[in-house]
Design a protein around this nucleic acid. Structure first.
Lengths: 250, 250
DNA sequence: CGAGCCCTTGAACGCCGTCAAACTCAGTGG
DNA sequence: CCACTGAGTTTGACGGCGTTCAAGGGCTCG
């Protein structure tokens, strides 16, 4: 099946290159041919902005768009009837989000903009049409979702079998790696707009206890988290605590 | 790209229909055309048997095969340097396993046969070649991995934000649903060859405490787990405890 | 200036992990 | 046939860690 590259489509407003994050994201681990990139670059992607605190995807909503996160932070979470919340994952620029809710119609995830967020909105039918005749493209999306799954698996290991202090160490190291991969932050510090309560809900702790663990890490001179900045002071110690290996993030 | 249906390939030993579980699995949620099924049915699948306790995939091993589980139970897990183990997921007949370790080369999952296990071994290049010109097939695998991810996400919610008794209730209900979907077990009882220690390692509990929770559930006349059988006595109570909705399993 | 959110710290309770012991049962070998 | 072993289950005692409850401070907004 040939891909629709007709003038009509080509005329639709395409985003300028800096926001063509999707091609960069998917090109990471599958060896794309020039034609693959051409197909991706021809996808219509509309820029959208969500204000801080706004739900991008709301529980149970039927969806026909995926999003590529261009700027800002987001997170996916579930609300439980017992009044608690579990954060599934945080998303940083370059992440592809909303694929699961599209294919899994009964998915009760919420997706929330933590800061002001800029996304590229991708119509799902366009995306899947692009896959149809191109195995490498399909594989790249498969790869991307498997990587997301690997991250969730690590969170499960964190929450299930690591001491709180180790969890927190692991969490900050993971964020550091993910941000480095997209050129945000250095080896020793990065910006992090999350609240302690949000992180606690990701790590299966109470906000109070997370705060106490932070103090421990500060007193160990291992890491600090203050006013939206994370500083990794003693990375070696952190990695020992967390048993951290960034391989699963590539 | 035409699919290789040459006599040479057709002559290779194909499994008889009852073990052609792969077609049934992938046909579940994508509307397959007859030609899709033809392609799948023409895939060479070699039957393999693993004895109880045997590792199907070992940490860090480089893989070129995926497996469709035809009989028996398996589980994926991670070992931590602190000496603990986190079970990621259990697999029952009909489940497709090993896709993540194939694409994610640095995946340190282990996959273990809990009982004697019969699998169909699928060469990954054959599988991906089949995808290449057929979007529905590619999508079906994507769907399958997204469903797996949804299950892991539920486990994360379990471990992160549910009380132990609620976790256990949720766990038994999930297994019940998954087994029912493949015709194993009834609404009120099913066979379950897992040890208490294995389940505890999936739920982020100690074996001792899991055992105590089992007693609670027995005394509540909600469920029993004894000699390899799970009995759901008071499903309504269990569902209330667990806040269970089987939608994520389809 | 008050409201509300976030962070921080203290006090106290109780859940759940640790340690330990006893029991069942299957498998093995004398 | 029985002794021995090891894995799995069950139960008790105990203590510590993390939750809950509560109060106070800093900050941003309206």
């Amino acid at each position: 099946m040939p891909h629709d590259l007709s003038p009509l489509r080509a005329k639709t407003r395409l985003l300028p290159l800096p926001t063509r994050t999707i091609t960069r994201k998917l090109d990471t681990h599958i060896a794309f041919l020039p034609e693959d990139k051409t197909i991706l670059d021809s996808l219509e992607i509309r820029k959208r902005v969500f204000p801080k605190g706004c739900d991008i995807i709301h529980e149970g909503q039927q969806l026909q768009n995926a999003y590529i996160l261009c700027a800002g932070w987001a997170c996916s979470y579930k609300l439980l009837r017992n009044g608690t919340r579990q954060v599934i994952n945080f998303y940083v620029p370059g992440d592809l989000i909303g694929v699961r809710p599209i294919l899994l119609s009964n998915c009760d995830d919420n997706l929330c903009a933590i800061t002001r967020v800029e996304v590229g909105e991708i119509n799902v039918e366009d995306l899947f049409e692009a896959f149809d005749g191109n195995g490498r493209l399909a594989m790249s999306i498969l790869w991307s979702t498997l990587r997301d799954e690997a991250i969730v698996v690590q969170h499960l290991v964190d929450v299930g079998r690591r001491r709180p202090i180790d969890r927190v160490a692991h969490f900050f190291l993971e964020l550091s790696s993910r941000l480095s991969l997209v050129g945000l932050g250095t080896k020793t510090a990065y910006q992090c707009p999350l609240t302690q309560s949000l992180i606690a809900d990701a790590l299966g702790l109470t906000a109070v206890h997370f705060n106490r663990v932070l103090r421990q890490l500060r007193e160990l001179k291992a890491t600090t988290f203050h006013e939206g900045w994370v500083e990794l002071i003693d990375s070696e110690r952190l990695e020992r605590l967390a048993d951290f290996d960034s391989a699963y993030l590539q």
